[in-house]
């Protein structure tokens, strides 16, 4: 299917906003709201951390997409919210989750990221950019910065969700 529209910041913003809302509403019954506009690609140097809350511990899910457009999305969720999301998804209490361990949280956030990036990517597919998802991976930390390669464009969006913040950091390799 030929591309029906250019990949613009507006298309990316609409897609990621729709994807995050759809996933969090469907799976967790919570409605996130987009709070910040994207950083324009030219404004990102030097690369800031996408971590929304400074040094608080975060779980970061990553899923890529490959095809007519290549990219990677990092979904930043603070650890407390990641625990809440996992409990809700799996029907567990906080004590049960503590007993189950961090791997369960990693897997749940990996799946939430997979759904979010899948939903984002399906929007690109339907605009004519065929691509496939990669397998999710997880980063954990309190204070770190991800630096994209020079050819990549970066778009960062922050969301408020039930008194928690989350961020979607999108790295895209756009063709000229």
């Amino acid at each position: 299917m030929p591309a029906t529209e250019q990949i613009t910041e507006s298309l990316i913003r609409d897609n990621i906003s729709r994807a995050v809302k759809h996933v969090f509403m469907t799976m967790l019954g919570r409605e996130p709201t987009l709070t910040t506009a994207a950083s324009s690609p030219k404004e990102v140097a030097p690369t800031p951390s996408a971590l929304p809350d400074g040094a608080r511990p975060h779980v970061v899910g990553t899923v890529g997409f490959l095809g007519d457009v290549n990219g990677l999305i990092y979904l930043y969720i603070d650890l407390d919210f990641a625990r809440l999301c996992t409990c809700h998804l799996l029907g567990m209490t906080s004590d049960e989750l503590s007993e189950a361990g961090d791997e369960v949280i990693n897997d749940a956030i990996g799946e939430l990221t997979n759904m979010t990036v899948g939903s984002f990517k399906n929007g690109l597919n339907d605009s004519g950019y065929a691509c496939m998802l990669t397998i999710p991976s997880i980063l954990r930390g309190s204070n770190f910065t991800i630096e994209p390669i020079g050819a990549a464009s970066r778009f960062t969006y922050h969301f408020d969700c039930s008194n928690h913040r989350l961020a979607a950091d999108i790295l895209l390799k756009l063709e000229d």
Partner: peptide, 27 residues
């Protein structure tokens, strides 16, 4: 039951033979 939900991909997979297709996220 997959996050892979682009129209072209769904059609390609459906042609192989599936009874239904549910795109994640799902209730």
């Amino acid at each position: 039951l997959t996050a892979e939900g682009g129209r072209d991909n769904v059609l390609k997979i459906a042609k192989i033979g599936v009874r239904d297709y549910l795109v994640k996220p799902f209730k």
